[in-house]
């Protein structure tokens, strides 16, 4: 009996140890270079890097280039490729995809599910600022290599529990929040104390005589409201941490892009 338990225990131990070693299967190759920006050596090298990152973080990191755009703009094209061609890892389809269109010289980075959180507005800006100069120089290999490196860097930060500049506030915002947190309680306490103090002095002048209006004597004989003019002011809306939008499939994507 003891031997049977020992065999079962060893089998379970083997299975449990083997589980993390099973590689995640991704439906799509990490790079689809329709615009033919890369030579075969570059393609192989970047594919290998992407595959390593995908497996390491169980998170889809992919690149798609096209000569002609799939949809009407770069954002829709990137989203549609991601949604309809089965990109994403795990049950939630977590991932990020860099889309480049050669004919219009536009690019877009789309994020989905956990990708929206890890590659937040600040993360996307960080990515864009690093790859755009290379795209502008037509150095696509370097742009893609940078994209992979930064994606890995941000994924590692998220794994370490500190998502890249999540909710990063500007210095003025930080000072405003700290200043508010320091002063508002004092102000509230002062106002409440003044309120309580008003119970200590109730002998105050009454400048009105509303209690002495004779009932039924109030009569409005003329009333005119004359419109003079209008003014309209507009202020930019505060940007949220996630600039989500809906793709044609109805799914919510994050990301950003531009022209080069």
């Amino acid at each position: 009996m003891k031997k049977i338990f020992m065999v079962i225990f060893v089998c379970l131990l083997c299975v449990s140890l083997a589980v993390p070693c099973i590689a995640t299967e991704f439906e799509n190759p990490p790079i689809v270079d329709g615009a033919e920006y890369l030579n075969s050596a570059q393609f192989a090298e970047l594919s290998e890097q992407l595959e390593r990152v995908r497996q390491r973080y169980n998170f889809d990191v992919a690149i798609v280039t096209e000569y002609e755009m799939t949809s009407y703009d770069a954002m829709s094209s990137a989203d549609d490729i991601y949604d309809y061609q089965g990109y994403g890892a795990g049950v939630n389809d977590d991932g990020i995809l860099l889309y480049i269109c050669a004919s219009t010289r536009e690019y877009h980075i789309t994020t989905y599910a956990e990708g929206e959180r890890i590659f937040n507005v600040n993360g996307i800006e960080y990515l864009k600022s690093n790859i755009q100069p290379h795209l502008a120089n037509d150095d696509y290999y370097l742009a893609m290599d940078t994209y992979i490196s930064i994606a890995e860097e941000l994924l590692q930060m998220a794994e370490d529990g500190a998502v890249f500049n999540e909710n990063e506030a500007e210095t003025s915002d930080v000072l405003m929040v700290i200043g508010g947190a320091a002063l508002i309680p004092l102000l509230v306490a002062f106002i409440m104390m003044r309120g309580k103090l008003s119970h200590m002095k109730t002998a105050v002048q009454n400048d009105y005589a509303a209690n002495y209006v004779k009932p039924g004597t109030k009569q409005l004989t003329q009333s005119r409201d004359m419109f003079i003019y209008s003014s309209v002011t507009k202020t930019p809306r505060a940007k949220s941490n996630s600039e989500s939008h809906r793709s044609s499939s109805g799914r919510s994507h994050g990301g950003g892009g531009g022209s080069f």
Partner: peptide, 17 residues
């Protein structure tokens, strides 16, 4: 953008009490 439109009026009231 957030928009704020302010309409300015001049009011006239006359009455007895």
């Amino acid at each position: 953008f957030n928009y704020t439109k302010t309409d300015y009026y001049k009011l006239f009231r006359m009455g007895k009490v």
